[in-house]
């Protein structure tokens, strides 16, 4: 009889621990799902974790170019990074060449149609930076071919 009671207690303890174990997995799983809502989707592409940049890496400048963004390192560059790269890539800025009037018109167009915010007193500084570092150069009606990589044709 006593022996049987012992067995029953042990069985109950096993059941309870199994139950708590399951509960733990379930609750843990729910927390995981909350963080990863697509865990059950077959086609969810795992994205690489961003490599955390140290401040030193971020500030790196080579040949006058701010490596992390590709911008020319000059006065007010940080203002440009902060205001001009939250919707689009820095590349959309750095591949363009415009006069002061051109950059001003582009900013106005973005404010009117693309949800760019009011830049306040920074607008002047941003335009000065852009007009200085991304000014047009005279290309004429047709340029010479450049950056030719010569190779032997077999």
């Amino acid at each position: 009889m006593e022996n049987n009671f012992d067995k029953q207690i042990k069985a109950l303890a096993r059941m309870l621990s199994a139950f708590f174990g399951l509960l733990l997995v379930l609750v843990g799983g729910l927390f995981y799902l909350k963080e990863h809502p697509n865990a059950f989707e077959k086609n969810s592409v795992p994205e690489p974790l961003p490599v955390a940049l140290t401040k030193e890496d971020y500030d790196k400048v080579e040949d006058g170019i701010h490596i992390a963004t590709g911008f020319v390192d000059d006065t007010h560059m940080q203002l440009v990074v902060q205001n001009c790269t939250s919707c689009h890539s820095a590349k959309l800025v750095t591949q363009n060449r415009m006069s002061e009037a051109g950059w001003t018109a582009t900013i106005k167009w973005m404010q009117e149609t693309q949800n760019l915010w009011d830049l306040g007193p920074n607008e002047e500084k941003i335009i000065a930076y852009l007009a200085k570092n991304y000014a047009p150069n005279q290309k004429g009606r047709r340029q010479n071919l450049s950056d030719i990589e010569w190779y032997e044709l077999k």
Binding site: L53, K55, Q78, V81, Q82, T85, S86, W117
Partner: peptide, 26 residues
């Protein structure tokens, strides 16, 4: 902001699932 080494101006206007350029690595 820590990773960027600068505070994000107008941070409240960042789209909610948007990652600043410097942190993207696709």
């Amino acid at each position: 902001a820590t990773a960027l080494g600068a505070p994000i101006v107008f941070a409240h206007k960042l789209p909610k699932d948007y990652l600043p350029l410097a942190l993207q690595d696709n």
